[in-house]
Design a protein around this nucleic acid. Sequence first.
DNA 1: AGAACCGTGCAACAAATGTTTCATGGCCGA
DNA 2: TCGGCCATGAAACATTTGTTGCACGGTTCT
Lengths: 290, 290
Amino acid sequence: MAEPAKSSPLSELRIALPSLPLRLQEVGRFVAANDYDATTRSMRDLAAEAGADPAAFTRLAKAIGYSGWDELRAALTEARRPSQTSPFSARAKGRRHGPNADVTLITDKLEAEAADLPRISAHAIADAARTLHGAKRIWITGYRSCRSVAELLNYELRLFRPEQVQIVGASGPDDLDLGAFSPGEAVIVIGFMPYTNASVRVAQAAYRAGTTLIAIADSVAAPMAEGADHVLLFEAASSPGFFPSLTGALAIAQSLAAVTFSLGGTAARKRLQDTEARLAAASTYVAEKG
Amino acid sequence: MAEPAKSSPLSELRIALPSLPLRLQEVGRFVAANDYDATTRSMRDLAAEAGADPAAFTRLAKAIGYSGWDELRAALTEARRPSQTSPFSARAKGRRHGPNADVTLITDKLEAEAADLPRISAHAIADAARTLHGAKRIWITGYRSCRSVAELLNYELRLFRPEQVQIVGASGPDDLDLGAFSPGEAVIVIGFMPYTNASVRVAQAAYRAGTTLIAIADSVAAPMAEGADHVLLFEAASSPGFFPSLTGALAIAQSLAAVTFSLGGTAARKRLQDTEARLAAASTYVAEKG
DNA sequence: AGAACCGTGCAACAAATGTTTCATGGCCGA
DNA sequence: TCGGCCATGAAACATTTGTTGCACGGTTCT
């Protein structure tokens, strides 16, 4: 398992796709999108559903280096075969060094993050969401790496409450927004150790302004959690790697948005539909293929 | 006698098994034990491996109530189809509308996300990281909600490779950067369905420019994955909630950065220390209390 | 413009598929 | 022991499979 990994037939297909004739690209995409049917149903059957010529499948297979459709399909079925590789196999080998050290690192990291997720307090998130639901306005803060989480939360909340949500500092220096904080509003601060001075300043301003303060942090002792009405804890340091993990923080943010949306009921749903309709009208997204 | 509920073709088979002729029992057991091969390989092929007569398979199918082997195999194929069967029946059971509905939603969401993390391909990430390690320059793209993941990846990579990493469009319109792509560089595109037109444009530009294209997506059929040298898959839709989950994408990004850092060795470590020292000198962080 | 080329759909091909028939051999009841 | 029954394997069947040759239409190069 030391070699650069034999690429799966699907990735071979994907790599070759752009350099293929138009019609072959179509069927290639169809195969990639329906690879399970590709392994089970017949070539003519697939051709009928894809609205293409049966011969195109044979030609596609040959174009990406197989002797024919039969061989491509055989490769696909082998790739799909339920692997008997137990999730512990990688760990059982227990090699910390050598060519597989990277894979081991990733596996450990993912497993640690997966183990941390269920430890997040759902009750705390639900409570915080109720607060958000009642807030007149929602401010979101996160600096450095936490900025990414802040932006996702901002993005999702604005899908159904566009005028009431914004990132601190979005329209000018952060300091300008700090003065705008007022009671009845909610401020969300995201951070973990080492804590950024700026985030603590925001938290303190929020507290002094009498807003509802929600902290997403790695510890109740975090400085931005002081005086917070809600503290949502995640595990940042249990995962290996050179940098703390933000997976937990992101999961919290997503759940927070999901419950807030749920509390919003019909009104929120309508807002979301409006937003989606506007995006569709602007043809932001790639049209779905039939 | 009432007909047993025909849950799955396999259980039908198991029930009828004892009342079958000896030879048919053998074949039936073989099918039950190798149902994946039963759906993919041919009848004669199976017969050869089972050491039985091909006709026995037709007779088996008829004996348990199917019109022939074709129909039995079709039933087995449908039973094995991956998408519809969610690994967790949590979603199947009706969502409660009581006061605990929110907590249930969060718990389900976190559990689903935790279950998806270990399914991420560590090998694919390790391969992609090796590519990043050798890249002269790294471009990162992600639009709309994926922007958050893109920014985190950008942030972490810049900690130890500051001059060689940047987000597409960071210094002006995206289009300006597209022209700057050149071989030896790597372009990372993050996206999931529905796919943004802009991200597809970036992917195509990257492909045409001959850069190494790395796609972080929810499907190998994603348009930005076409022609990609590496595709890192995450599960976006398995988690409940009004919006797809980005937890998997974030986990991938973090692992990617971690392994790339690891490959960087001493040089990367030194760069990281320099960055940290600079941040400390600017007193970005709250001083640790003794 | 002419010619060479390529992508594409159609139709015919040989091979392989699932099914059925038939002959055989063993089993049990009369 | 004979006669009917049924399970079983081998071979012949019609169908479907994947493949390939061919002609048409469009593009590109000379």
